[in-house]
Design a protein around this nucleic acid. Structure first.
Length: 682
RNA sequence: GCGCCCGUAGCUCAGUGGAUAGAGCGCUUGCCUCCGGAGCAAGAGGCCACAGGUUCGAGUCCUGUCGGGCGUACCA
């Protein structure tokens, strides 16, 4: 404030004596800048002198800032009294008459629940807690992907290759299905994987291109499939993508495959220095990695390559069996769906996610189709290239591609994600009476949601304006992106097993005297808390790099640090033999004497919780709370290292005990907002 | 092409337009006779990608450039 005042004063004075006349803006700035800087400290001092004594304990001017101190004992008594009196409710903001639905944790049945889903669930759960604390009426909604192409692919693969098989472990049936799904994906994309690999070789391996060029020419002369060889030759030499539908003989690639392997092995056995080519991009793979990929594909090339087109047709037919609601197929769907749902219920229970509403994709298919029909009838949607779409930019009269085109039904009449989302959104507002709907979905779906909201708007659905997509970035691994093709997807169950096991070890080492049941409970609380904190202590628009080693360390900036501070506070209170009620009664007349800086700093942090909740809710950012609660724990650490509690003489002892109790409560409330448990001992 | 996001310490990340830009990990050195060492104290480590602009004041706001990621009609 003093900076602004000084600037105004200096400018006014100079203007008054005409010193600024005819000068450019820049020149004025150069002239006033120094004067303003000189003026500030004196001005700040004057302001400080003027307000000193008006009920403030101390007022001082420092570096152009005015620092105001309040009577610490009075403020502390009031704050601690409020915290102890309100307990779990401390930090909560007055209720708001607005119902918000948060949709998150949209796992797909027949697929594995992995580390990516974990980020979504942690974010969603924390967000619902934060919004509730900020006074909103919150509906916590799950939306299970229990139908769609992935389900059909999985069931096709199950019937075709695993009929009659049952997962060995009943607790992991969903996971077993996920493996079947992964297999179906590998089978159906096999040709694409092979051709992408050839394209990769052609793009970043000049030695390979030269060698293959020679060999293909040799084959060309003596082979009957001359046209195919010529095609491959041309594409590889020019590093162009290869299309299998342009091959005359379907098995030419299969015949060609061993030659590629020989060449890759030869390159590794006799490495040649590669002369860098100007303008050519750096290779992204090593020769060893390329050979490994070749070997992985070689395992199935004879069996799989010829069948891919027929398999894809079978998948299409399988989808039609769903469409026709063929009883046997529906029965299979129901059984396998339940395997996945059982897994999900267990996982959400472990994560402390309790939903008010469970939506399923399968229950909005019919309603979605009706909406598509209506959109077509009203001319908002049209049939283009054989399928119903909404050409949004055209409808809005936009020149530059912005919202583009949204397909709303497949050409064979089966439903898309968009078909179902149109129906579900209407349901949320009309049947559930929400005022605002939030979708917690990863950032790659941003355009998709803008499209959905625009289509609803074009349809005349005014609540589209109250629909918000909350995007968050992806989870990666230290070694790169998560990819089911590369087979490096960390499954939730595996991560949890590793983290819980580590937590057990550490408890055994640090606190062997705890009762066995307590040890087990605490191991879970610390393990799950640690995982959650890793997911939440990163802003929504930042990629999370999930490092299992880091998640296992339990040291430093992590949940256990905060939980530990909470446990220490509990122990101090326990050793003192006081109960919160006693301290609450004493709160009105607390006397810290002359409070230590660590005590003031801690009091300040405790008082900040309501503001932090508001900020986190306004911006949908659990990170705000994650940072806050860590900072609070750190200040508590500073406090108990600097200020002995139990050995202090009265009345300071009681004051410090009350402060410890208030900190404990605030730590617990902050952790609760993140969905993290606060153990009393660990 | 068009659009969105990211770029801060060796690494992973914080940082309402305001004071000398902060944590954690890793590295160096200390601290358990003292409320629990999952902790604490100290040290080294920064042209806040780059260039302009707005402002009394920019890591923060605006424009552009470079680098990286993602999306862009029948996956979800």
């Amino acid at each position: 404030m003093c900076f602004g005042l000084a600037n105004d004063a200096v400018t006014a004075e100079l203007e008054a004596i005409g010193a600024l006349e005819g000068l450019s803006k820049k020149e004025v700035k150069a002239k006033t800048g120094g004067l303003v800087r000189e003026r500030i400290p004196a001005l700040a001092q004057r302001v400080a002198d003027a307000i000193a004594g008006h009920g403030f304990a101390r007022v001082e001017a420092v570096n152009g800032y005015i620092n105001i101190s309040f009577d610490a004992n009075r403020m502390a008594a009031r704050l601690i009294g409020e915290v102890l009196e309100r307990g779990d409710a401390y930090g909560r903001v007055a209720p708001v008459a607005e119902t918000v639905m948060v949709e998150h944790s949209q796992p797909n049945t027949h697929k594995a629940f992995h580390v990516g889903h974990l980020r979504n669930s942690c974010l969603g759960v924390s967000l619902t807690h934060i919004l509730r604390a900020a006074g909103y009426q919150v509906q916590d909604a799950n939306y299970i992907g229990d139908i769609g192409m992935h389900v059909i692919k999985c069931l096709w693969c199950y019937e075709r290759f695993h009929r009659g098989e049952e997962p060995i472990e009943p607790a992991a049936r969903g996971r077993w299905l996920g493996e079947i799904y992964a297999e179906s994906d590998a089978r159906l994309n096999f040709r694409k994987d092979v051709l992408d690999f050839l394209h990769l070789l052609a793009t970043e391996d000049p030695t390979f291109v030269a060698a293959i060029d020679k060999m293909l020419k040799f084959l060309w002369r003596k082979n009957t499939e001359g046209e195919d060889i010529a095609y491959l030759l041309g594409r590889i030499a020019a590093a162009q993508p290869i299309k299998d539908e342009l091959l005359r003989e379907q098995d030419v690639i299969v015949k060609f495959w061993p030659i590629i392997g020989d060449q890759l092995r030869d390159q590794i056995a006799n490495p040649k220095p590669i002369a860098p080519v100007d303008g050519a991009p750096e290779p992204t793979t090593t020769p060893e990695e390329r050979l490994a990929t070749w070997e992985r594909l070689a395992e199935h090339i004879d069996d799989w390559w010829p069948h891919v087109p027929a398999w894809r047709e079978e998948v299409r037919e399988t989808f039609q069996r769903w469409e026709a609601q063929e009883p046997g197929f529906v029965q299979l769907w129901e059984t396998t769906r339940e395997w996945s749902l059982a897994d999900f219920r267990r996982i959400f229970d472990e994560l402390g996610a309790r939903f008010d509403v469970w939506f399923f994709e399968s229950e909005v298919e019919a309603e979605g189709r009706e909406i598509v029909q209506e959109l077509l009838e009203r001319g908002i949607a049209e049939v283009s290239e054989g399928l119903p779409v909404v050409k949004i930019d055209e409808k809005l009269g936009l020149e530059t591609p912005t919202y583009r085109t949204l397909p709303i039904l497949r050409s064979d009449g089966t439903t898309l994600y968009s078909t179902k989302d149109l129906a579900l959104t209407r349901r949320k507002f009309e049947r559930f009476g929400v005022d605002r709907a939030i979708w917690v979905v990863d950032v790659r779906q941003s355009l998709y949601f803008q499209q959905i909201f625009k289509v609803l708007e074009l349809w005349g659905f005014t609540q589209a304006a109250q629909s918000f997509h909350l995007p968050y970035e992806m989870v990666r691994l230290p070694e790169g992106v998560i990819s089911s093709r590369k087979g490096n997807v960390p499954i939730y169950d595996d991560i949890r097993d590793a983290v819980v096991a580590r937590a057990r070890e550490i408890i055994e080492e640090k606190n062997p005297d705890l009762a066995p049941e307590v040890k087990e409970t605490v191991a879970w609380q610390v393990a799950i808390g640690s995982l959650k904190y890793a997911m939440l202590a990163r802003d929504n628009n930042k990629v999370v790099t999930f490092d299992l080693e880091e998640a296992l360390s339990f040291e430093g900036h992590a949940a256990p640090y905060i939980q530990y501070a909470h446990a220490r506070a509990c122990r101090i209170l326990e050793n003192a033999g006081v109960i919160p009620a006693d301290l609450e009664a004493a709160a009105a007349s607390l006397d810290f004497g002359t409070p230590a800086p660590e005590e003031l700093s801690l009091l300040q942090a405790i008082s900040a919780l309501p503001d932090e909740i508001r900020e986190a809710a306004d911006d949908y950012r659990p990170l705000v709370i994650a940072n806050y609660v860590f900072d609070l724990a750190k200040r508590f650490n500073d406090f108990y290292h600097a200020c002995p509690v139990l050995q202090s003489p009265e009345p300071v002892r009681t004051a410090r005990l009350a402060l410890t109790a208030a900190t404990r409560q605030t730590l617990a409330n902050g952790l609760a907002l993140l969905g993290i448990a606060a153990p009393a001992a660990m």
